[in-house]
Structures are given as structure tokens and as C-alpha cells.
Write a protein that binds this DNA or RNA. Structure first.
Lengths: 305, 305
DNA sequence: ACGTCCATGTAGCAAAACTACAGGGTGGGT
DNA sequence: ACCCACCCTGTAGTTTTGCTACATGGACGT
């Protein structure tokens, strides 16, 4: 049995289309189709079924794809072994981040990684609301994702999850706001305010609901933005208040925006790295992950002191 | 990185010779040599070193070979998955045994396995004194081996060990022996006797030493045989007494040989199946192992009742 | 009904892996 | 000390394998 073919099956399980697999593996669809056919002939039972214009895996195909992951992991681990022997981190690592995490972590990480001459890290950013984090792992080695505490929407898919940090979400206020002198604010203090929100499906959303429940009222959301820079600009202009991740804020002019911890509400987001388990084994990837973790720890330490 | 090449490296680690690897994998030595060279070039560091007329692995080579095992295990597990889907046990399984275990277990096992039409079990026997059990796992899927309790000469090599049964070793006496009417015998009873032994290095040897220590004397070993049939013939002829595995004895004429448990001496042998871990994953192999275990359990149960 | 998208055949080509054979080095035997 | 046997490794040539390019046929949406 051939590993390359198994790999194709696994890609098919993730991408649901021969053409997509072909694109991802730099082949023509015909080549992929032929190899899958060979695999089926070897297996002696159908692994795929046509479903409309695409095709889906049979139960057997899915089972085989699952075990193909273990093979891939073992293989990557083997190549990592010899990378360790050479003691030189080499290769390309692709990474997607949502903007705030990238701003907070990536510059420091890349500076730290400059010591590895052969390591090339290619970073991209992507709006979190547009992106299905788990799905991105097909195309990127490392996916920086965020979720609320306890909420783990990427479990069960067999992805490797590395927690990087927990970031508190504060209430951002203009300096001339009536609450700006407080040390912290409660749900009841802010429930009546005009809010700047985030698009639907965003993790912040849930906290806003919690504030409504605890504060006993309805939050009025005047605008919805994905970009934090924009949110902060609106706050500073006195057009509303918003939830702002504590470590990420501060692009704006100092002295025009203040952050107040939110009492009694579980307002944190978890920042994690998501990876396909085989990719997580690569030495280059592990090196980047290590850098991310130390950088995240440093950011957190700087803010607590 | 290619799995086939990794596999060759692993075979080389076991067989210590390109020619042997070539034989085992049905290739010419030249082909093996070329592939190993490619692997080295990919790795970027030497994996083998010439040592006299043969060649040995470097540290890096050994490390890589070790992780190649994990790859092989994952791969075999994958093929097992789809064998399970087909729900038909197929393929060849090769097995070596030492004579007594084979006599005791194999006929029943093969009868039980007859229900699997596509399963071909090829059995061979081999004198245990001549054979290095762990080394045999390179050439056979299943190696039936024995050892004394606690003694595990095949640990650390990364082999899969499946315990099948523990068989007591009794003292075999001719029916007209002065101890033949006893229910059991102690070390002091038998230490002065003339013994039929087994060749050096045999596991039984250690027990004889223990008898000497407990009985306080020297055991006189008149003959040394590997074949139990021969040992029993000598016992029945009154030429000596010997340690006889309890479940295996009885080829001879009934009524001319009796077995007596040995009191106070740890006289047992452990019968185990030894396998290379990747081979242990194969469905056909697992099926044979299951049959061996149930058969062994039955033999043990028949004798205790 | 037409165009588009997708999977999959066929033919031809390029790359990879193997065999056959020869050469060079090492160790055991006489 | 010499020779022979053994083992690894090159080179040349062949076979096998996997890919591209192009064409075909079915399914969906407009």
C-alpha cells in the first residue's frame, strides 16, 4: 500500500473534491482520480461515491482516511527526527492569524525566529468572521484562532490545539466618559450604553448577551465592525463603548481611550494555535509554536506587572 | 521522504547487511544500495558507515530506523482497518515454533483457523538452542518462544510480546522409580539423581542450578538432548530423570513415565509470541495470535481440571 | 436547453526504480 | 603471503510508475 495514495484520500476527506485536492497537491485532477482508483482496486472495496457533481467518501473511505492521518503523523515525526539531528531548522511555515493576535504576537515572534537562517515563516491575516478556523488548517500549517473559555468548536475533528494565552476583554471608554474614573465597571453600569459591536458569529457576541442578562436590560448596538482599529476610533469619538481585548488595544492616541475591567462577567478570550496533527510534528512548525508560546507568555507577563 | 526507503533502512538495522536486505525484499543488492544512497542525500547526513566488508548504521541512521518502525506500524494499522472492513481474513502468516509448543498448540490452532478460507499459515519448527528468538522476528511474522518467569531477554528491542501460557516443569520419572509413588518431590529428593539435561543456554538450565542450590549437592547430567521425545525415551529406559514440561509430555507409551511437581522450586516456563510491532498489526497475524491464545487457554484448562 | 463544473477515461511522455554486470575493498583460509 | 569468497557500489539499459494533455459524459444552475 502506498502512502502517497493514502495522503490523497485524506486530502479528499478534507477538501471534498478531486479538483481541490489536485490544486492543493500540484497535480491535475486526472492524476488524482487515477491514483484514487488504484487505491480502490488495492483495497478491494469502494472508497468513494459520486454525489451529484462531486464525490464523497464511503464509510470505508472515511475510516481509511482517519488511519492515514496516523501514518502522516508518524512520517512527519520521522523527518523531524532527522531535522533534529542536523540541528538546523529549515523549511517554510505558513500561518494565518486574525488581525489582533497578529499585531500582538507576530512581530516579536518573527524577530525571535530570525536566528534560524533557513526558516521562512509566511504570515497571512484573515477576518475571523469570514473564516472557518478548522477548515483553514488544510491550507496553513498554523492557524491562530480564538474562542471563549470552555468553548471548543474545533474538538472532535482530530486537530492539534495549542493554547497560547487567555486575554481579558475590557470595556473601552472615551476618557471623558462618566465611568472613566472607575477602577472597574459592572454589567449594570454599562447595559444602558450605546455599544459598538462585532459582526454576528463573533465570539464577543456571547459576552454582550451575558451583560444583558446580568445588567437587566437590552444593549443597544449602534454599529458592527470587524476591525478593532475602527472600533477604537468610534469609542474615542464618543459614539459608543465596546469590548476591547486588553493586550491588543492602544493603537489609538494615548489619553483618549481607557480600558476598564468588567466585573462579574466571564470576559476572556482564549487564543490558540490550531494545526493538522501531522503538520504539528514538523520541527520548523514546532519551533514557530514555541516562539509563539514564549512571546504570548511575555505579553501576558508585561501586562500583569 | 519516501516510506519504502525508510523501510529499507529499518531492514538494514535488523539484518546488518545490504545483501540480506536485498534477499528479504526481493531486490538486487544494487537496488538497495542505490535507494539508501538517495535517502542519505535527502537526509543530508551519513546514515551508514562501512565496517569491514559489511556496513553499520550511524547514530542518525539508528534514530531514523527507530522512527521508521512507527511509520510501519501506522501503515499496517491502516491496511488492517480496511481488512476489517472487508471482513475477510486473508494473507500469508509465517510462524516458527520450538517443537514442544508446536506439538501442543499448532494442530488445534490450524483446525480452528480453517474457517478462514483465505488465511494461509505457514509453520516451521526450529531448535530453540540454535535460534536467537528475537532475530527470528525478521523472517517470521510470529515467533513462539519460551523463557523462564521474569526473564525477558527480548525486552528493549521494541518487539511486541504476547504471553500465551505458563507451563509448569515437572520431574519426569520412570514408573518403577523409588519416587514414583510420591505426589510431589522436593529438590533434596532429586539432587543426587542422574539427570538428562538440555544443551547449554536452554532455559531449563537455570532450574537445574536452583535444584542444586536448594538440594545441597551437585546434579550429575549424563546426557544432553534438545528433543523431548529423546529425553523421555531415556527416562523410560531408566537411564536418568529430567525436567519435562507438563502439558507437552506424553508422546511415549502411557504407564512407563510419570510426572511429579517440583516443590519449592520456581519451575515454570513462559510461552510467548514474539513479533515485530508492524507485523503484529496485520489482521491476519492478529487472528492467528487470537487463535493461539484461546488454544493455549484451553490446554491449560484441560490440565487443571 | 445551454453552459459550466466536476470526475474520469485514453494516449503519450518523463521520471523513478530495478536488473545485469563489472569493479574495488575486506577478511578468512590455505 | 596469496588467493578466494564475500560484500558493497558504481554504470548502462530496461521496465514500471505516475504525470500531463486532451477528450468524454454526467449533474447542476440559469
Amino acid at each position: 500500500m502506498d502512502v502517497q495514495r493514502l495522503e490523497l484520500l485524506r486530502e479528499l476527506a478534507e477538501r471534498h473534491s478531486v479538483t481541490a485536492v489536485a490544486r492543493a497537491t500540484h497535480r491535475t485532477p486526472s492524476a488524482v482520480s487515477q491514483q484514487l482508483k488504484v487505491l480502490e482496486r488495492e483495497a478491494g472495496l469502494p472508497l468513494t461515491e459520486r454525489s451529484g457533481r462531486g464525490l464523497v467518501l464511503t464509510d470505508a473511505g472515511r475510516a481509511l482516511a482517519r488511519s492515514a492521518t496516523d501514518v502522516a503523523v508518524a512520517l512527519e515525526r520521522a523527518t523531524a527526527v532527522w531535522d533534529e539531528f542536523r540541528n538546523r531548522v529549515t523549511g517554510d511555515v505558513s500561518l494565518v492569524t486574525f488581525p489582533t493576535a497578529g499585531q500582538m504576537l507576530l512581530p516579536g515572534v518573527l524577530q525571535q525566529l530570525a536566528e534560524h537562517a533557513g526558516l521562512v515563516v509566511k504570515c497571512t491575516d484573515m477576518d475571523p468572521e469570514l473564516s472557518d478556523f478548522p477548515a483553514l488548517t488544510s491550507d496553513f500549517d498554523i492557524v491562530l484562532a480564538h474562542s471563549m473559555r470552555g468553548q471548543v468548536p474545533w474538538g472532535g475533528r482530530g486537530l492539534t490545539v495549542v493554547p497560547l494565552m487567555t486575554e481579558p476583554l475590557d470595556v473601552g471608554l472615551p476618557t471623558n466618559h462618566r465611568l472613566a474614573s472607575r477602577a472597574s465597571v459592572g454589567a449594570a453600569d454599562v447595559v444602558g450604553e450605546t455599544w459598538i459591536g462585532v459582526p454576528d458569529g463573533y465570539p464577543f457576541e456571547r459576552i454582550v448577551h451575558e451583560i444583558e442578562q446580568q445588567g437587566g436590560g437590552r444593549v443597544h448596538v449602534s454599529q458592527r465592525f470587524a476591525d478593532m482599529r475602527l472600533v477604537e476610533a468610534f469609542i474615542m469619538a464618543g459614539l459608543g463603548i465596546a469590548l476591547v481585548p486588553r493586550y491588543t488595544s492602544g493603537g489609538g492616541q494615548p489619553g483618549r481611550l481607557v480600558l476598564k475591567p468588567l466585573r462579574g462577567v466571564d470576559a476572556e478570550r482564549q487564543i490558540v494555535a490550531l494545526m493538522r496533527p501531522d503538520r504539528a510534528e514538523r520541527l520548523a512548525v514546532r519551533t514557530v509554536i514555541d516562539a509563539l508560546r514564549t512571546r504570548a507568555a511575555r505579553v501576558q507577563a508585561e501586562h500583569t506587572s
